[in-house]
């Protein structure tokens, strides 16, 4: 069941993202140059500025340092967590040969564990920030719903990390079953009580992926396009 959900989620995420991009480029470009000054002299400068604005958020740093810290944490650690999950597809050979299985397990426990905690704190910060004026007054239910969903995914993930004690080979077996379109939990997971935690983690993450391109989270691609307008 959770298996089918994963396929739907990936399909909707990809199709939804493609639709959103189509939806944007279908509209005519503004006939007026909307950029502001100072603006870079050439397209190389524009590219650099785009990367800086979209990855370092210098305007946020200038404006609200605490917010900048948590937002950077959320995005960088979030990206790191996504990459960390890739271990389930297969070991990264150079690192594996150097550290060995035990070393890799320790690394992912420390790395993944701290990432899980950092994400928890960052999302809680963003959530509690919304309870305060004036942020409360500009928030809509979508904002809370997304944060709560992400919070739930993180909490379930942290539970798996700290309390479930599945071996990476079990996750890899599950991932393999997904890739071969024959989704099933391997015995070690299926017989554990924590299988429901994993199923819920996958389920909520799939929900997020489905809603992703249709929500404000579409800024994961839109912000690059919009930040390019700054130097138009």
């Amino acid at each position: 069941m959770a298996g089918v959900m994963v396929y739907v989620a990936i399909a909707v995420f990809l199709a939804g993202t493609a639709y959103k991009i189509y939806h944007w480029i279908r509209a005519p470009r503004s006939s007026v140059r909307l950029g502001m000054f100072p603006r870079p002299e050439n397209s190389f400068g524009r590219g650099l500025k785009l990367i800086k604005d979209s990855i370092v958020f210098p305007q946020v740093l200038d404006n609200d340092r605490i917010m900048w810290f948590f937002v950077i944490m959320l995005h960088i650690v979030g990206l790191g967590t996504f990459i960390g999950h890739m271990r389930m597809l297969g070991e990264f050979a150079p690192l594996y040969n150097w550290l060995g299985k035990d070393g890799m397990d320790t690394l992912s426990y420390i790395g993944g564990g701290s990432a899980g905690l950092i994400l928890l704190v960052a999302v809680l910060y963003l959530l509690f920030r919304r309870f305060k004026a004036p942020y409360r007054d500009i928030s809509v239910p979508e904002d809370y719903l997304l944060l709560l969903l992400i919070l739930l995914i993180i909490m379930l993930g942290d539970h798996l990390r700290f309390f479930a004690h599945f071996d990476v080979t079990d996750y890899q077996a599950y991932m393999k079953s997904l890739i071969t379109f024959n989704p099933a939990f391997p015995a070690a997971i299926a017989e554990s009580g924590a299988r429901w935690v994993l199923a819920s983690h996958v389920f909520t993450a799939s929900l997020l992926a489905i809603y992703f391109p249709f929500s404000k989270l579409v800024h994961f691609i839109g912000s690059f396009a919009a930040n390019l307008v700054r130097s138009d």
Partner: peptide, 26 residues
């Protein structure tokens, strides 16, 4: 009236509220 740039603006605002310190009127 919505052109491509305005569509971005419609879709991607996260309502982070950081613009509050930018506006002299607020």
């Amino acid at each position: 009236r919505l052109n491509r740039q305005l569509l971005y603006y419609i879709d991607i605002c996260t309502r982070c509220g950081l613009c509050k310190d930018a506006c002299h009127q607020y």
